[in-house]
């Protein structure tokens, strides 16, 4: 449904060129959820913004990046070559690919009612009269579990509570009938009980509508519950990928292992937590070689800090970018410059 290859994104900043996303490739299949996990600065949001062509003006996308999207009519659209402001791009945003952001308050306009904003989106992407669009909006709000939808539709965003606003955001994204939904930390700002409601709702809607979904979060617990496949990002690189259950049960990359160990768990209440040592390097000072070598417990001097490890295939859809695995599978082909 969506195939991204060799996506590299750089930003021109006052401190020089920084590259928050490097050589990222992933795929989303219809009806499945791809989870993207990573800490701050790992490039998880930036890479999905590129899919919608929503990057700011100082961003540079590498010329060999390919983003092939198969739309509802079955045609393949190359997102990277669409003209800005073109009709095709406008159709893609919202109509084909919907997006939910972390801050629902920031994504609604405060001066229009929820209904007004939904009707605008619906009429942009579907053939519907104002009255029909309003019906669709009410139906959608009802579906996401907003009680008394016919009254809520005329309310302003500030009149809704946080959880309700996030649900309205989901309704807005879904009202145009997208085939792929990108959810960027949709539950991070919500309380746990509301988060559970929203996660359940998104799962149900996905099943009903058969959407593909990209779910971005830093919370491995959430990923374990919602995603079929997962990619783990660190400093703009995908360090590990695979089926969620497999990655969590049997993590191969030291970073994934560290992340999983750092999560406090009720089973190990009295044990000390094991943090990943060190700090996340700033984007202006990217480490050479493997980006994780500065914090890795199994770092080998002269190799990890000099040459970047290749992505090693470990099975269907399962891959890791680490010298530890690279050695095992292709020790003969190793070439380390002196």
């Amino acid at each position: 449904m969506l195939k991204v290859d060799n996506l590299t994104i750089s930003f021109r900043t006052d401190e020089g060129l920084i590259t928050p996303v490097q050589d990222v490739s992933f795929e989303v299949k219809a009806g499945r959820t791809l989870g993207i996990v990573g800490e701050s600065g790992s490039g998880k949001s930036v890479s999905t913004k590129a899919l919608m062509r929503l990057l700011p003006g100082n961003a540079l996308v590498s010329p060999d990046a390919r983003m092939a999207y198969v739309n509802k009519a079955g045609e393949t659209v190359n997102v990277e070559s669409l003209k800005p402001n073109s009709r095709a791009l406008r159709q893609l945003r919202g109509g084909e690919i919907g997006m939910i952001f972390q801050e629902p308050m920031a994504s609604f306009s405060p001066v229009y009612t929820i209904g007004n904003q939904m009707i605008e989106a619906i009429r942009l992407h579907r053939k519907a009269s104002k009255k029909e669009a309003r019906e669709i909006a009410i139906d959608m709000l009802d579906r996401v579990g907003i009680s008394n939808a016919s009254a809520r539709v005329d309310q302003y965003p500030h009149e809704l509570s946080g959880g309700m606003r996030q649900r309205a955001m989901i309704a807005l994204a879904l009202s145009a009938g997208p085939a792929l939904l990108i959810a960027d930390e949709p539950t991070t700002a919500l309380d746990v009980t509301i988060q559970a409601q929203v996660l359940e709702l998104m799962g149900d809607l996905q099943r009903d509508l058969g959407m593909g979904m990209i779910f971005i979060t830093h919370d491995l617990g959430v990923i374990a519950q919602v995603a079929d496949d997962v990619v783990v990002m660190y400093l703009g690189k995908i360090v590990e990928r695979g089926a969620t259950a497999e990655v969590i049960r049997n993590p191969r990359h030291p970073y994934t292992q560290g992340l999983l160990k750092a999560i406090p768990s009720l089973d190990t209440l009295h044990d000390r937590l094991s943090p990943v040592p060190g700090d996340i390097p700033s984007p202006t000072e990217r480490p050479s070689g493997c980006p994780f070598h500065t914090r890795c417990g199994q770092m080998r001097a002269g190799q990890c800090d000099v040459v970047e490890p290749p992505e090693v295939q470990l099975g269907e859809g399962r891959a890791v970018r680490c010298w530890l695995d690279a050695e095992v599978s292709q020790s003969a082909k190793l070439e380390i410059p002196a």
């Binding site: 009680s147 509570s161 959880g163 309700m164 309380d191 746990v192 009980t193 509301i194 988060q195 559970a196 409601q197 996660l199 359940e200 919370d219 491995l220 617990g221 959430v222 990923i223 374990a224 519950q225 969620t244 259950a245 969590i248 049960r249 999983l260 999560i263 768990s265």
Partner: peptide, 20 residues
């Protein structure tokens, strides 16, 4: 309602009606 980072753990939050 806490999602566990464990694919074997059943995630079955108690459904609370409404909002705070």
């Amino acid at each position: 309602a806490i999602p566990q980072a464990d694919p074997d753990a059943r995630f079955d939050p108690v459904r609370l009606k409404g909002e705070i």
